[in-house]
Amino acid sequence: MIELKEFTCIECPRGCRLAVRIDSGVATVSGNSCPKGVAWGAQEAVAPMRGLTTTVRIEGSSRRRLPVRASGDMPLSRLLDAMAAIDPVVVRPPVRRGDVVLADLLGLGVDLVATDDLEADAERGAE
């Protein structure tokens, strides 16, 4: 069976329009401007994967939220589950970018890591 799918590649701002042809489980990607598009298009056609960036709560600081990211992509279908798992996470200063704030998110093999520094300050959090 041959299946044809079209996607806008999200690997870079160029946003190439990819055409993916799947023939007996083998994906052929066209429309890409770089090799990244081939890998992404092939994956997207089978099981879309996405990165996740969000924030976590802070205690003990005048700042209220710390930006974080998942260390790798996860299935698109699991993003909202991941968000729910992140809701209770609270960090306290100091935090350095790259610090793991939650290990092995949902057992997906990716960690939640800080993407910003959080220094201790004199003021108390006002939330």
């Binding site: 924030t55 709560r57 968000m83 729910a84 809701d87 939330e127």
Partner: peptide
């Protein structure tokens, strides 16, 4: 202006 904090809406 807002309905509450984030992380508590779900």
């Amino acid at each position: 202006l807002c309905v509450g904090p984030t992380k508590g809406a779900r």
